[in-house]
């Protein structure tokens, strides 16, 4: 290996900060049904635009749809089970443009995540 400024190959120094998933102190409710007829309080331990790690007194979940509502925000976020372990329940989130628009209005965390995902 040699170091110079010619040629196309590059290596980015590692330990660069990655913000696409971040720790959070958000809380909300988890439900297995979209009508939230039965739900469980949960903490969103970390969050990105495409996923969440939920912790708390969560029942055993299985592959399939799951639903989350953040406290004080009347928007149902639909997700899909990825895995559950002692660390918590990881779900994949699929937000449509309308939900994103609404979440940007009501959630500081989502606004920040979206701002980060839009290039200058």
């Amino acid at each position: 290996m040699t170091a110079n400024t010619n040629g196309p190959a590059a290596r980015a120094p590692y330990n660069r900060r990655e913000f696409s998933r971040r720790d959070s102190t958000l809380s909300g409710r988890l439900s297995l049904t979209p009508d939230f007829s039965k739900s469980w309080p949960t903490r969103i331990t970390n969050i990105s635009l495409t996923g969440m790690l939920l912790t708390g007194e969560i029942p055993q979940c299985y592959p399939g749809p799951l639903y989350v509502r953040l406290d004080d925000i009347d928007i149902t976020i639909s997700g899909l089970f990825i895995m559950q372990s002692e660390a918590g329940l990881r779900i994949k989130i699929g937000l449509d443009d309308l939900q994103l628009t609404e979440l940007v209005v009501h959630s500081e965390v989502y606004t920040s995540l979206v701002l980060e995902a839009i290039p200058d």
Partner: peptide, 8 residues
């Protein structure tokens, strides 16, 4: 820029 003999 770091140039390696392999990989680009």
């Amino acid at each position: 820029q770091i140039v390696r003999w392999s990989g680009s």
